[in-house]
Design a binder for these strands. Structure first.
Length: 464
RNA sequence: GGUCCCUUCGUCUAUCGGUUAGGACACAUGGUUUUCAUCCAUGAAAGAGGGGUUCGAUUCCCCUAGGGACCGCCA
């Protein structure tokens, strides 16, 4: 049994979106599950559209998700010579031929096909014409001589047997007229040289697979296993594209989604293991298999991502949650000031129970992060003279406190409830508003303790 | 239009011929609570339609409908 090897092969012609990330995740998980290898191959042979910034974005995205590849990144454009060599070999062996059709001629064929409402397939014109008749002014492309008779069966590890008539596969171009290789050739050659055992990729590659298998066969190479996973659809049921809202990783990281939450969500999107919903990293690797992959496309569901994230935040130990939060603020908000660090850190225990995202934590901790209180106007209006009186009484009481702790604070509050003939709300609400600017927020004792006596007195004095 | 794929609650899914069709998210209601949340309980919610096969079909087969992917000298 050969050692399992998988790869993720994105093209840097646009930012990597969440569908690509899932493909990468599945490949990675599969290889890890089999104690195999996982490689990253950058398919940058489209010189026009490939951009370095996208390559960087792809690599950073994978890194953020914790998907690590073995060895160096494989840069496809560096291997073009190999691909051309194989193309020549195919020509010599009679598996390919030069096609002298002009671009106009091909356009014409396509137009006609469209008019007649019949599918366009290259008419294989030059397949059997002698090269002696070739026009001198046209640089030929190299086409693969596809099978015409019979049909082929793809034994897909997800979809089962897929049968297709060979004649529906056209004689596809393997070398452009500028001598550069095209995708199907390059991908096949690379996969072969990289010793790939399993090709796990999006459903949209299925036709390519039939082409690539023919190349393998022509060269006498062992054919790897293929698994075509269903695509992720938008809420409108269409293939997810780079242009769709909330499709790149950055769209998620900037609102404070944790990579482990997204990983768990993506894992369960189109894959399942019994009724299990939560998979930590170890479990993901342990349970992942191809059998659990569903056949139908699935839609992205933001509320599910959010609730998964909420779960991971709640179950994250405070110190490591602080690190994540600090990093998040560094990148997307303001750096946390040194003197606020302790206070934030010790508040996470209650802050995290109110948060679905790191951004929620940020919003709920603004009263600590900022030195001045920003009031919600309608909330501020709730502070009437009666409320001010209580605020002042409370302030006087804590001023006399030697030990500033929860028990003593509770005692004061209870005393004030009695002496002022009010209820908890009558005290808690004005305090919360004057300390945080809003009537919504963490528990009042949590707020007071996280701010510290001096700051509390200062803020109460400002309003009272 | 051609080829191929798909179809269980709104969403993600379990079920591998016999179940009151299960879970999770979202939603609704109630409870706990110190506001907002959390948490807990309860509820509503699904086999696209039609034929077969079978003692019995969500499950196997066929047809129809709906949805999707591909149809580049892009990857």
């Amino acid at each position: 049994m050969k050692k399992v090897a998988t790869r993720f092969a994105p093209s840097p012609t646009g930012p990597l979106h969440i569908g690509g990330i899932r493909t990468a995740l599945f490949n990675w998980l599969y290889s890890r599950n089999k104690s195999g290898e996982f490689y990253l191959r950058i398919e940058d042979t489209d010189k026009e559209r490939s951009k370095d910034e996208h390559k960087t974005q792809i690599i950073n995205s994978l890194k953020w998700m914790g998907i690590t590849h073995d060895g160096e990144e494989y840069i496809q454009s560096e291997k073009i010579d190999e691909h051309v060599k194989i193309a020549k070999e195919l020509l010599e062996k009679g598996y390919a031929y030069k096609c002298y059709c002009s671009a106009e001629e091909i356009e014409e064929q396509k137009k006609r096909a469209k008019q007649k409402k019949i599918p366009y397939v290259y008419d294989r014109k030059w397949r059997d014409i002698s090269e002696d008749e070739a026009p001198k002014n046209i640089k030929p492309v190299l086409r693969f001589k596809s099978k015409i008779e019979g049909s082929s069966i793809l034994k897909d590890l997800v979809q089962g047997d897929v049968e297709i008539e060979n004649k529906t596969i056209e004689d596809f171009v393997i070398l452009r007229n500028d001598g550069t290789p095209t995708y199907n050739l390059s991908a096949s050659v690379d996969d072969y040289y990289m010793n790939m055992t399993h090709i796990i990729r999006g459903d949209d590659h299925k036709i390519n697979t039939f082409k690539q298998i023919q190349i393998y066969e022509a060269l006498g190479w062992d054919i790897p296993f293929f698994a075509h996973i269903p695509l992720i659809h938008t809420i409108n049921g269409k293939k997810l594209s780079k242009r769709d809202h909330a499709s790149t990783l950055e769209d998620y990281s900037k609102i404070g989604i944790l990579p482990e939450a997204l990983r768990n969500y993506l894992l369960r999107l189109g894959w399942s293991y019994k009724d299990k919903e939560i998979f930590d990293l170890e479990e993901s690797i342990k349970y992942f298999n191809l059998e659990g992959i569903g056949k139908s496309p699935s839609k992205l569901d933001m509320s599910r991502i959010l609730s998964m994230n909420e779960y991971y935040i709640k179950n994250c130990e405070e110190n490591s949650l602080y690190e994540k939060f600090r990093e998040y603020c560094d990148i997307y908000k303001d750096k946390i000031k040194k003197e606020k660090e302790y206070s934030i850190k010790s508040s996470l225990i209650f802050l995290k129970n109110k948060a679905k995202t790191l951004e929620d934590i940020f919003n709920n901790s603004k009263y600590i992060l900022n030195d001045t209180v920003t009031f919600n106007e309608s909330d501020k209006n709730l502070i009437n003279d009666e409320a001010k009186k209580i605020i002042n009484l409370f302030k006087e009481n804590i001023l006399e406190l030697n030990v500033f702790d929860r028990r003593n604070l509770e005692e004061i509050v209870n005393k004030l409830i009695k002496s002022n003939n009010t209820n908890f709300k009558g005290i808690g609400q004005p305090l919360r508003i004057s300390l945080t600017g809003s009537r919504f927020g963490p528990g009042i004792y949590d707020i007071i303790l996280s701010l510290g006596k001096d700051e509390v007195v200062k803020r109460l004095s400002d309003i009272g």
